[in-house]
């Protein structure tokens, strides 16, 4: 035998899963919502998405270049962050603000903390919260361009009254990617089928919001349904809260995260000064995730507990 044999420690085969493939799956899962957003809010939405994604990727590439780190944009995570941030912005936002948001998400929240896997909070969510606090434009939701609408606020604002059907199709004011429930649910199913995420976190998060809203609305199921279809809940619960890096690892941890985020969301919606609380809720739960992780470890086989 001429060539040397490779010596290595087992295992010698791999499942074939990769970070790149997972990120690609998230992008694919976001496509329905992206397309729906562009249809509902028009070309301006497309411009916001393109610019935010390009900025996110550009900033990460630039950071790696300046700090002489290995280029990481190939793992697609910057695209995911850019796309998620864009889908959380209103279509009529000044374009320069998109660039600032992407800068904050990628440089401050992600790269300065050590890059993918080391950030303690979700970059897209944190940037959204930053922009909400910094820019007034974030609270003036864009209106759908494909239908005549008179209502000017998001359905969560007190004066809004949107039918459940419009909520489901996304024909109301809001951020580009958050309004179309159908598109987001298609993405959810895709992620479940591809086993990128488990059902626990989104279902418990949304279920908690439903339950608490149902209670606060005086046992009104329609109002509770409207509560879960409004604002950024679906996109937040399905795509942002499930970010691996900043959410708990075990099923019970995900359940705890979901309950906490659900309760905080409703409390902010009903008692806070902001109409929407999903971003804040996820951000807060991101911060307590290390604690949740340490409370919800699997029991080790043969050490007291029977099994995981």
């Amino acid at each position: 035998m001429s060539k040397q044999l490779t010596l290595s420690v087992s295992p010698h085969i791999h499942s074939g899963r990769s970070t790149w493939r997972i990120m690609l799956d998230v992008i694919i899962a976001l496509l329905p919502a992206t397309v729906a957003g562009c249809v509902i809010f028009g070309l301006r939405a497309l411009a916001v998405i393109a610019l935010t994604v390009a900025s996110a990727v550009g900033f990460e590439a630039l950071f790696n270049l300046i700090t002489k780190k290995k280029q990481t944009i190939g793992d697609l995570s910057a695209i995911v962050t850019g796309l998620l941030l864009a889908l959380n912005l209103p279509a009529n936002i000044p374009l320069w603000q998109c660039v600032v948001g992407a800068l904050f998400a990628i440089i401050v929240v992600k790269c300065l903390f050590g890059g993918l896997g080391c950030n303690i909070v979700n970059p897209a969510i944190t940037a959204r919260v930053f922009m909400l606090v910094a820019f007034g434009s974030m609270t003036k939701a864009a209106l759908p361009t494909i239908v005549d609408t008179v209502a000017g606020a998001t359905p969560l604002a007190p004066e809004a009254a949107t039918s459940l059907g419009d909520l489901f199709l996304g024909l109301h004011g809001g951020a580009i990617g958050e309004t179309c429930a159908v598109a987001l649910l298609i993405g959810f199913i895709y992620l479940l089928v591809r086993r990128v995420i488990s059902w626990h976190l989104p279902v418990v998060f949304i279920g908690t919001v439903f339950a608490v809203s149902f209670f606060l609305e005086g046992m009104n199921a329609v109002a509770a349904l409207s509560a879960i279809l409004s604002g950024g809940l679906l996109i937040g619960a399905i795509f942002m809260a499930t970010d691996y890096v900043t959410s708990p690892a075990t099923a019970w941890g995900k359940v705890l995260f979901g309950v906490g985020a659900g309760v905080i969301t409703v409390l902010i919606r009903y008692y806070g000064v902001y109409p929407e609380g999903v971003s804040f809720a996820i951000l807060l739960m991101n911060i307590v995730t290390p604690f949740i992780d340490s409370w919800t470890k699997h029991k080790v086989f043969g050490k007291g507990g029977k099994k995981a």
Partner: peptide
């Protein structure tokens, strides 16, 4: 080999529930 993304697959597939 790329950075850990904390996906939890390792602890969720470990037969003995290790991390």
């Amino acid at each position: 080999t790329t950075p850990c993304i904390r996906c939890g697959s390792c602890t969720n597939t470990c037969p003995f529930g290790l991390a």
